[in-house]
Simulated scan of single mutants.
Amino acid sequence: MTVEISDATQILATGSGPITGDEYLPCRPDDVFWGDLPCAADTPAMTVEPGTSVTIDTLSHEGILADQGRDPRAFFGGHGVAPEMVLDEAIELCASDRPHRFGIDGPHVTTGPIEIAGAQPGDLVAMTVIETLRRVPYGVVSNRHHKGALPGEFPAGEANYSAFVSVDAIPDGSAFGVMPLDVGNPEATARFPLAPFLGIMGVAVAGPDRAHSVPPGPHGGNIDLTVMTEGSTLYVPVQVPGALAYVGDPHFAQGNGEVALTALEASLRATIRFDVIPAVEVNERFGALVAPIAETQDYLVPTGLDVDLDVAVQNCVRAAISVLGARYGMQPAQALAYLSAATDFDISQVVDVVKGVHARIRRSDFAR
């Protein structure tokens, strides 16, 4: 499918358009992390006080990787995207001598890290999504390298498969992804709502070695948690002084599971507020927190992580029991019974080596 996307007013270039945060962190090609995540030894891109909001530009990895030609103008041009509609950061990163080891490094581009003054191990960093803005009016869903939920079946043959998706924005502010049912017949399409979020939200790992960008962990990272849309907060256990927080892997939409390997990957400008929950308050609010936990207007969202999906579910159930006890004083046996009767446990993703599960506990069930 090719589309005519040529109106450059539809892109958010560096420094252009709305910047609503207290601070602004662009996605500079020389400063981003590509394939790995910050560690304790890395220098922060900026330092902020708790309570500060930062508008952060992020860059999707789709269209810049070696197996896609490391030439985003050519890659997206093949789908009808005019050269001026490709973000400069993507072009500059690919044109640089920045090393990226194909098949070894992760694919993701990450912006940061941001030092949060006073944050210490034992605390939580609270990352609240204030706003997400689309930087481009298109994105890509990929099934590559015989990965995903059906690695022996897709992609067919040796070729990687990338599905191009255009964005249909309507006057009421809603936006939809448009994908052809068959690339040979672009007139017949599927149209699905967008719900932008950042797949990578996390903090630096301890020690001198950076974490790989693909598997999530206690540091957060590539958690691919779809509930992290505007208004939601992710709480991540601090691993190093200052936390050194970062974001990346922007999505316009994703189904829980992310079964192809990627979801609708596309660049976002996100405004995030950073707060610190002191260690003395963590147990009272969340219990014995091991993995990150999210909170939305409607739900508490504990997570469970493991390479074994069964164990990830068990870890999520344990986290849910813990938070119910801490937040509401619920007896563990009663909490397990409640979860079985009233809570959905969703697969966050099955494609990032370490699989993720998240629970959605209705906050209204405990209104007093």
Rank of each mutant, 00 (worst) to 15 (best):
D123C: 09
E115N: 14
H108F: 00
A82C: 02
G78D: 03
P83L: 10
A90H: 02
M85I: 04
E84M: 09
E115T: 15
D97P: 00
M127E: 01
P107D: 12
R98F: 14
E84H: 12
G122C: 01
T110Y: 08
G112Q: 07
P99G: 12
V109S: 04
P99T: 12
I104M: 14
E84P: 11
V86T: 12
T111I: 03
L93H: 02
A95G: 10
G106K: 05
E89Y: 01
D88C: 03
A95H: 05
I116D: 05
V125Y: 07
G78H: 13
P113L: 15
G80P: 07
V86I: 04
I104P: 03
G80W: 02
H100Q: 13
Q120C: 06
M127Q: 09
H100E: 10
S96I: 10
V86F: 08
M85N: 04
C94M: 12
Q120H: 11
A95V: 04
L87C: 00
T110N: 15
T111R: 04
A117F: 01
R101D: 04
V125F: 06
H100F: 10
I91S: 08
G103A: 05
I104T: 14
A90I: 03
D88S: 06
D88L: 03
E92Q: 11
E115Y: 13
E92L: 14
A117T: 15
G80M: 02
D97Q: 13
I114Q: 04
A82R: 11
I104G: 03
M127R: 03
D97T: 06
V125S: 01
H79F: 14
F102C: 15
G78C: 13
E84C: 08
H79Y: 15
M85Q: 05
Q120L: 14
R101H: 08
D97Y: 04
T111K: 10
F76E: 05
H100S: 13
T110H: 12
G80T: 06
G77Y: 11
A126Q: 01
I91V: 15
V86Y: 09
E84V: 09
M85R: 13
V109Y: 03
V86S: 08
G103K: 05
F102I: 10
L93A: 08
C94T: 15
H79A: 13
T110K: 10
M127P: 00
V125W: 08
V81M: 03
S96C: 11
G80K: 01
Q120N: 05
L93D: 11
